[in-house]
Nucleic acid binder design. Structure first.
Lengths: 130, 130
DNA sequence: ATATGTATGTGTAAACTGCACATATATATG
DNA sequence: CATATATATGTGCAGTTTACACATACATAT
């Protein structure tokens, strides 16, 4: 396994990370799929896949956290413009709570990763071989 | 959707979070599945599922990041005691890098979530209704 | 022989996601 | 009208991950 391959393998985003990112963006301004693809880059989605994004938006509307309407006045293909709902703002708050909890877990990880000396002895941590 | 249901829905753990947690624990002392179930609680796995843990351990051994041997000397059922390999320590370092990157993304999220006033106006953020 | 606690493991189904592919509109060009 | 291009939205499918239920096995006590 090369260094590059390992890095590609480790995708450190929580499941559905796209959902709170979209909600947070829509809380500030209404937007549509094609534009959201650019904005999500700041949150770790450097090469956002269109299919994933549009599917997520539809799922979110089905769940009632966003709503949409067609916008045809701007020239070019029609855009489905999304806005956040009250349920969506509440859901975003849940995500914020959960993310704070998770951040504490990651802190535990880093304290143990950097703080303590590795190769402590508790069991018999085979000193030689296996 | 009740508050409880929503909370259950939002699981803010990255994919394979169990992997670095196991590696980090094994870096300090050798251990086995049943014992690891308790230790993972500190990292957000409060009700660890045995099946998930054992399957993950086997997958990790297949990938060469841990190795195991049977221990039958302690009384009770035999334990498969795992230890981290050199490849495992290197893999743990990759995870640490990725987690730091991810933490930056979460920081961006929280700055936007708490820092700025919601309901800014950029597009036409429908002032009234939908 | 039965029950209990310890310990490891599999089968299956649901959810999530990346990749490839399909569709549709507006504009420019010939 | 025909074609190409940029914009914009959407579906099919397959691989991975994971939760839940279930199965297996050993040691000890009674």
């Amino acid at each position: 396994m090369s260094k590059e391959e390992k890095k590609r393998e480790v995708e450190v985003r929580p499941r559905n990370w796209l959902v709170p990112v979209i909600l947070l963006t829509l809380r500030e301004w209404n937007s549509y799929g094609y534009e959201l693809m650019e904005r999500t880059a700041a949150f770790g989605f450097e090469a956002m896949n269109p299919g994933t994004l549009y599917r997520t938006l539809r799922q979110m509307e089905k769940n009632g956290v966003v709503k949409s309407k067609w916008e045809t006045s701007k020239g070019g293909p029609a855009r489905r413009v999304y806005s956040i709902t009250d349920a969506g703002e509440a859901y975003l708050d849940f995500w914020a709570d959960a993310l704070e909890q998770y951040r504490r877990n990651v802190d535990v990880f880093f304290r143990m990763y950097t703080g303590r000396p590795p190769r402590n002895d508790k069991n018999d941590k085979e000193g030689g071989d296996g």
